[in-house]
Simulated assay, not measured.
Amino acid sequence: MTTHEDKRQQILDRYYFRHATKGFDPSRKISKEDFRVILETARLSPSSFGMEPWHFIVVESDKLRKLIKEHAWGARGKVMEASHFVLILARTHEDVRFDSRYLKEHYTKELNYPKEVVANMRDVIENFQKNDFQLFEDMRYLDDWSMKQTYIPLSNMMSVAAELGIDSCPIEGFNRSTFDQLLEEEQLYGDNMTLSVMVAFGYRKEPPREKKRRHLNDLITWA
């Protein structure tokens, strides 16, 4: 029988297992069932005000993988060998500002919130964006705030992958403007989207180095 203590240790073991995998074994593929779970954890991830300001592109074509390899220095050595490769897009300021058409339709049509709730949320989000976080000082702040949200599903995907014995590597090594143009040319973008981060999934080719981190006492303050 698995005890609560066993469960705690299992969680820690999975986090010691997880590492930013630099080399993937191209002969090993993630099962459709396992990868569906990884994607579902992304879909179920929380976001500020429930905006869900993201979209996920699962890269399957060799053509697109080669484009990524050519233009993303951080993906070289990973994108062609990984079993699955995901581009995580973030909605830009046009969609995440308090008065956007996207938010109104998202809350009313997708989440089926009552009109009075949507109206109240609009006021709350306006105050938050303009006053609390001062995101209207520059529209780039809104873009960055939206991209920050995408790191929540990114983290969840990698954590659940580790639970399934699957390796992963998050990737920021790319020029965002270049990729926005490339993906638009490939007709993979909806309106008001930008590339936030990439992530590779698969199985390690070689054992990783020993995991090293700062001591917990250096990172935590009990106040």
Rank of each mutant, 00 (worst) to 15 (best):
I11E: 00
Y15D: 05
S27A: 14
S27K: 11
S31Q: 08
K32D: 13
V37P: 00
V37H: 07
I38D: 02
E40H: 09
R43T: 13
P53L: 04
P53K: 03
W54V: 07
W54R: 04
H55W: 02
I57L: 15
V58I: 15
L64N: 11
L64T: 14
I68D: 02
E70M: 09
H71M: 02
G74M: 11
K78C: 11
A82L: 07
S83A: 11
L87P: 00
L87C: 15
A90L: 01
H93W: 15
V96W: 01
R101H: 14
Y102G: 13
E110I: 14
Y113H: 11
Y113P: 07
P114F: 15
K115G: 04
M121V: 12
R122Y: 06
R122W: 05
V124Y: 11
I125L: 15
Q129M: 10
L135G: 05
L135F: 02
F136E: 13
F136M: 09
E137C: 00
E137N: 02
D143E: 09
S146V: 01
L154W: 07
S155L: 12
S159D: 04
S159N: 11
V160K: 08
V160P: 05
A161C: 10
A161D: 03
E163D: 13
G165P: 03
C169W: 04
P170V: 09
E172W: 02
G173S: 13
R176K: 14
S177A: 12
D180V: 00
E185K: 14
Y189K: 12
G190L: 07
T194R: 11
S196K: 03
M198P: 02
M198V: 03
M198T: 04
E206W: 06
K212Q: 13
K212Y: 07
R213D: 02
H215D: 14
H215M: 07
L216T: 04
W222Y: 15
A223V: 13
A223R: 12
A223I: 09
